[in-house]
């Protein structure tokens, strides 16, 4: 039933402000730097699904581009026409900036480095802040990889995400965080959203594992972490997933990348280059 919404801007990793039922009523495309007024009804050739793990998301992007070829702007999902009016897009982000997460997302890539923007999102310690950090973080690391960067471009986010998995196993959200109502009860809708965010954290770490395969790094053992969580955690409840993270997930993460190695890698990253 979700259908086309899954290939719309609302499910694209360049839009950190929306994911499924969670988010603001409007999105923001960090690629084209525009406010998405009807994110469920627009898309473009650069679309990458954030509900899929890296390999599948990129495979789907290739198929998506056969249908939506435009790489220089947003298209209407149902007509494929380029968006040419304000009904879909808004260049002025001032409305968005009244929201703390919206403000940080609109700053992405505008001020200083992108990692600074991601750090601002992380510091908000909110459901939507984490969502934006993870969504844009996936795009950031992938972009770094395509520019000959290593998986370690996501090292800081790895550490932040690992900490969140431990300190905030059941992320709380409020009524202001829901952009649509579903057919499920409100309690269940909230639980499904929580499950979705924790799974997104695991998908982010899995992404780094996938990127590390090419580098021949032991972190590559985490490439299937989200898959393992889904297969081993049982029923689709936040309690089951949180228990799996606590009992298994954190151990596997720490076995692949210890805090000591994180510090050593971080020091390497900050060494001056010739």
């Amino acid at each position: 039933m979700h259908g086309t919404q899954l290939v719309s801007c609302s499910n694209c990793w360049f839009n950190g402000l929306q994911y499924g039922t969670v988010g603001l009523s409007m999105g923001y495309c960090a690629e084209y730097k525009v406010v998405l007024r009807r994110a469920d009804e627009s898309t473009c050739g650069k679309h990458v699904r954030k509900d899929l793990m890296l390999t599948d998301a990129l495979a789907q992007q290739t198929r998506h581009q056969r249908h939506f070829e435009r790489l220089d702007g947003v298209q209407v999902l149902h007509t494929r026409h380029p968006v040419e009016n304000g009904a879909y897009l808004e260049a002025d982000s001032s409305m968005l900036r009244r929201d703390a997460v919206g403000d940080a997302a609109a700053d992405y890539g505008e001020l200083g480095s992108k990692i600074e923007s991601l750090a601002v999102l992380k510091a908000q310690k909110s459901f939507r802040g984490d969502l934006a950090m993870l969504s844009l973080g996936r795009a950031y690391v992938r972009r770094c990889r395509t520019r000959q960067g290593r998986w370690t471009s996501g090292l800081h986010m790895f550490r932040w995400t690992r900490q969140r998995l431990e300190s905030d196993p059941r992320p709380e959200l409020g009524p202001e965080d829901l952009r649509v109502q579903t057919a499920a009860s409100l309690e269940r809708q909230v639980e499904l959203a929580q499950w979705g965010l924790v799974m997104l954290r695991l998908v982010f770490i899995s992404d780094l594992g996938s990127h590390a395969i090419e580098d021949g790094d032991p972190v590559s053992s985490l490439a299937n972490l989200a898959e393992e969580a889904a297969a081993e955690s049982g029923a689709l409840t936040i309690k089951k997933l949180a228990n799996w993270v606590k009992g298994e997930g954190l151990k596997r993460i720490d076995a692949a990348l210890s805090e000591a190695r994180i510090k050593a890698l971080a020091a390497e990253l900050h060494e001056p280059r010739d």
Partner: peptide, 11 residues
């Protein structure tokens, strides 16, 4: 599991 989530959300 993601498909299951979508089925629940949309009944």
């Amino acid at each position: 599991m993601t498909a299951r989530r979508y089925v629940e959300e949309a009944a």
